[in-house]
Every structure is written in C-alpha cells, then in structure tokens.
Amino acid sequence: MITLVLGGDVNLHGRAKSAFGQLEPLLKGADVRFVNLEGPLEAATAEALTSAGIDVVSCASDASHPAATLGVLDQAGIAHCGAGANLDAAHAPAVVERSGKKVAFLAYTSLRLPGQVAQPAAPGIAQAFATTAYQPDPRVAEIPGRSPLVRTAPVPEHLDRLIADVKRAKAANDHVVVSMHWGLPGAEIAEYQVTYGRAAIDAGADLVAGHGPQTIQAVEVHRGRPILYSLGNLLADRPDGLLAGCMLGDEPRLELIPVRRTADGESQALAGDDADKVLRYVADVSALRATKVTVQAGIASVAVGA
C-alpha cells in the first residue's frame, strides 16, 4: 500500500518557510505528498515546500515564469508535472517510487491565459480546455428572460491526449494520479469537469485531484475510484480547503481533513464544530453525486474501491 496526502492550491508569495508547520504531523505520515503550485517559485519560498516534505507539485496552473520555477523545483529535489520546456515535457508524468511501487502524477489546466500553453517547441503548461455554449431554458417561451443553460464539453483533441497520457502512464507505473485545475467558484460542477474526471478514471487513473475554483467541491466515486472535484485552498488567499489522505492498493481508502489559513498566513487543520461544518457540507454536495461521505470526529471517510 502507498499512502498519499494531497492538498489544493498553494501560493507561497510572501509566506514563511514554516507555512505548513502546523500540518507537518499529517504530511510527514504519508509516503508521498502532493500540492498544486500557483505562482512563480523562488529558492527562498521553496523552503516552505521542502520543510513540509512535499514530493510532487503540479505546475499546470501558472506559466508566468515556467523555466525559473521548474529550475527552482529541480534544485530543491521536488518532482513536477503539468509544465515543461515543450508540449511533450508538459504532458510527461512525474514519477515517485516508494516501497517498490511507482506512482505517476499528471497535471492539466482548464483555466489559462493566451500564450501559456506549451507548444511542440515552446515552453508552457498542459491544457485540458473546454468549449462553452448557451442553451435557451426549456421554459423561456412561457417565461421570457429566464437564464440560459450553460453547456460545456472538453475540447476533443485535449480529451484524447489526456486519455492517451493516462493509459501510457498506467502501462509503465503501478498507480496514476491526475491533477486538474478547473471549475468555477461554488458548489456547482461544470459538465466538462465530469467528462474529464470520469475519462481519466476510465483510462486507468487511481485518483483525480481537482483544484482551481478556490472553493471546496464534491467528491464522486466513479468505478470505485475517487474524483475530488476541488480540494479548495491549502495555502492561498481564500481560507478553506481539504487535505486528502489516500491509500492506493488492493484496499483503497480516502479520508478528508478540513484546513484553514490562519491570520498569520499558515495552514492548520480544523477541529470540533468548525471541522464538522465543513465536512457536512462535503457530505451534502457529494451525496448529490451518489457518493457517501461519513463524518466523524473532524475526519470524513469516503467509501471507495467498490
């Protein structure tokens, strides 16, 4: 069994190297630790990641200074995925080996600015973009002015590339984790998120970890494997997020612990009523996706592997 701890968005600008200090008991107990990195990274701020023992980061959510950030990560010994010197490098997995088992991490973004996307001979990020269309509400003939339905779908060639990436990574490694930077703030999950998430699981991913909306979203179990639609923030401008602990193997397990940024800019695990309030919300929105989340003593357990 391999134990993973996964966090959501992390922006280290202006943070102390002790930013994850209160989470160290949770982080250090895992075999592999993963977060999504937002914003450029410098050697000084990288100390916050190395002090916390972060093993792998996604760089797919920011490409403002890709070469410099990737260089700092390489120097710090932190594996990275989702960005690279060219298209193939951006789509290449970061592979971590523990106890004779290899875990491959792939990362993509559906949220990007022009010029950020990797090209065959130019640096950038790996994209999994979507199209947007507006469908008139079915009752608009009866009630003029009703808001249209928003329909989204993956860009076909991006979906095909993601599926091929996952299959290739699964063939060469024991486990595959897919990181997706996507979505809109709030509880509602866009159609394209569901399509990408389920396609990644169908292609062989053990887990899909989402982030980007700056809010917590539902968990869905698809074919016995979890899709975490948004872990929210681990260390960013908005306060709340989830820390996900996952065991990969014959008897997979998933647990969620709520975290919040303190007034000092550090991240801490919630407890008591504060924790239960966040986790009951997770249970409620996950139930809408036919997924049972059990909350007890500040920890949520998700039934996976069935």
Rank of each mutant, 00 (worst) to 15 (best):
S179F: 06
S179G: 14
S179R: 08
S179A: 14
M180T: 07
M180E: 02
M180K: 01
M180H: 08
M180N: 04
H181A: 11
H181L: 13
H181Q: 11
H181D: 09
H181R: 07
W182E: 08
W182Q: 07
G183R: 02
G183Q: 08
L184I: 14
L184W: 12
L184Y: 09
L184S: 11
L184R: 09
L184P: 12
P185D: 06
P185Q: 09
P185G: 05
P185E: 08
G186A: 06
G186C: 10
G186Q: 07
G186W: 08
A187E: 15
A187T: 11
A187C: 13
A187K: 13
A187Q: 15
E188V: 15
E188S: 14
I189Q: 03
I189S: 02
A190M: 13
A190W: 09
A190C: 08
E191I: 11
E191D: 15
E191S: 14
Y192C: 06
Y192I: 10
Y192N: 03
Y192Q: 08
Q193R: 05
Q193S: 04
V194S: 04
V194D: 08
V194Q: 06
V194C: 11
T195A: 13
T195G: 06
T195P: 03
T195H: 01
T195F: 00
T195D: 10
T195S: 03
T195N: 03
Y196E: 11
Y196Q: 09
Y196A: 02
Y196C: 06
G197F: 00
G197E: 09
G197T: 04
G197I: 03
G197M: 12
R198N: 10
R198M: 15
R198Y: 05
R198P: 07
R198D: 12
A199N: 08
A199S: 14
A199F: 07
A200E: 10
A200M: 13
A200R: 03
I201P: 15
I201C: 15
I201Q: 14
D202K: 02
D202H: 01
A203I: 10
A203F: 06
G204R: 00
G204T: 09
G204V: 10
A205P: 13
A205Y: 06
A205S: 03
D206M: 12
D206G: 08
D206Q: 11
D206H: 04
L207N: 02
L207Y: 03
L207A: 09
L207G: 04
V208E: 03
V208F: 04
A209E: 09
A209H: 00
A209W: 01
A209D: 11
A209F: 00
G210M: 03
G210V: 08
H211D: 11
H211G: 05
H211K: 01
H211M: 09
G212V: 00
G212K: 00
P213R: 00
P213T: 00
P213L: 02
P213E: 01
Q214T: 05
Q214W: 04
Q214S: 12
Q214F: 07
Q214R: 04
Q214L: 15
T215Y: 04
T215P: 07
T215Q: 05
T215W: 08
T215M: 06
T215N: 02
T215R: 00
T215D: 13
T215E: 11
I216Q: 06
I216S: 11
I216M: 13
Q217F: 02
Q217E: 14
Q217A: 02
A218N: 05
A218M: 04
V219Y: 05
V219P: 09
V219S: 10
V219N: 10
V219T: 10
V219L: 14
V219K: 01
